[in-house]
Every structure is written in C-alpha cells, then in structure tokens.
Amino acid sequence: MSAATATASTAPIPPRESWAQRMTRAVSRGPLHLVLIVIALVWLLPTVGLLVASLRPPSESAQTGWWKALTDTSQLTFENYRQILDDPLITQAFWNTVLITVPATLGVVVIGALAAYAFAWIDFRGRDWLFVGVVALLVVPIQVALIPVAKLYGTLGIFGDISGVVLFHVAFGLPFAVFLLRNFFAQIPRELLEAARIDGASELKVFRTVILPIGLPALASLAIFQFLWVWNDLLVALVFADTSNAPLTVAIRSQMRQFGTNFDIIGPAAFLSMLVPLAVFFAFQRYFVQGILAGSER
C-alpha cells in the first residue's frame, strides 16, 4: 500500500486522480473478483479432486475424502499409476484409443478437404444442392445409424474391428469437415489458383500446393476438433469395438459397476485418458476455440 502511494506520488506525470479512481474501481470491483475466483475454483475443484484421489492408495480412498491428502501429503503415491501402466488391459486400451483416433482424424481431414475443394472451386450440376445436403447431415444423431451399420459391418466382417470404428467416425465427422473447409477454401483468392493453373499445374497439384498450405489454420482447427471428438467417444466404440479393440473410455466404463472398490483403476485411468486431450487443449487452444465457434450446433 505505502509502496503504491510512493510510486504514485513520484510518478513524473502526477496521475493522482487516475490513481485514486483506479483504487476506487479496484475496491468497488473487489466483490466481482471474489465471485469470479470462487466460480473458477468451483470449476477446477472436481478435476483436482480426481487427480488427488487417483494418487491415494485404495485403503485411504475407502475411508476418507481426497481432501485429507492436502493436509497429509504422505498419502500421495504413484502406486496406482504404476499398477495400471503394468495392466495389459489398460495399456492395450490406451493403444487402441491411439489406433482409432489417429486414422479417424487424418481420414476426415483428407477426405473432407478433397470434397471441400470440389464444393468451393469446381463447377458441376447440382453442386449447391449437394452442399445443402451435406449441411443438413450436420446434426444427424449417431443413434440413427447404429443398428444398420452394425448389420453392415457384420456382413463385411469388420464388426468389432478398429477399422469399423474408424470408418464410422470419419463418416460422421465429414459433414462438419466439409462445411468448415469449404467456407474457408472459398475465401482463397481466385488469382492464386488461376496463377497456378496457368503455370500448368494439375488440379491435384493446385490442391496440394495452393489450397492445403493456405488452408492450414482451418485444417488444424478441424483436426483438433475431430481428434478430441474421437478420443473422447464412448458410444461408437461401445457398439462397434469388441473387448480386445476397446479404447480407454470403454475399458474404464466396464469397471464402473463397482465404482468404490475399483477406484484405484478407474481414477488413474480416467485421469490418464484426460491427459492427451488436456495437452492438445492447452497447446492448441486458439484453434480449438475456432473450431468450437465454427462448429456450434454439431
């Protein structure tokens, strides 16, 4: 306080009034700051709870709340994590999640970008109608496809396989991908494309050398969105993946029946499954938010 006063009084341009005003404002806004801090804490606390709880031995978790570990840090141990990382069920499930998520993300980006290019820059009869059709599919609930696709996969012999899960995710990711990318590609100046054409580039080359580099931000938004969508999915994998191909979400869910007694598996596994999305979220927050803004209503 006294330091602040000193600074204010020795400042070259006496901001006496503005300083006083600022103080008044800070004081009058005190309650606002307090409210926001409380809200932020309420929002963070449940996640912190999961993290702390996942670090406690089952004997402690069975008796007391995770907050006891805040005063008695000797309870914290990596033993649960060591155990699940040794558990082939969990490691296999983690690996399955990766095997599903990476191809499903790449697939939707590549196939979506190709289609979006056609919708944006190649003329053909019925183009607008077809695009309207794709936009209409944006909100189709996946439930409506579960039964027939399960039957179809049965016929094709891929029911239970990772490939079936991947294909389903790509298909249901496409309407959003085409919608987002077409709108972005359509903004690319025609001159750039024409210049490449005049230089004798083929359509594929134009796509690769002009569209893709310029469209990178949109592609990144889409990729992050799709990545999180697939990584976090439970229902699609629950229906189409058999036990050996089940991702983490399904593996964790199968332990939920005995929530209390299985918490030493459920807690750390759930936190483990959150780490990758959280890392992606913090690293690419801007693109994620853009994807959200563009993708409202999916």
Binding site: T47, L50, N232, M274, V280
Partner: peptide, 9 residues
C-alpha cells in the same frame, strides 16, 4: 477446460 475432456471422465 471441461469441454476438452471426455464425458466419461
């Protein structure tokens, strides 16, 4: 932040 994590988590 919760938007990034799975509904399962």
């Amino acid at each position: 932040m919760p938007m990034a994590i799975s509904l399962l988590a």
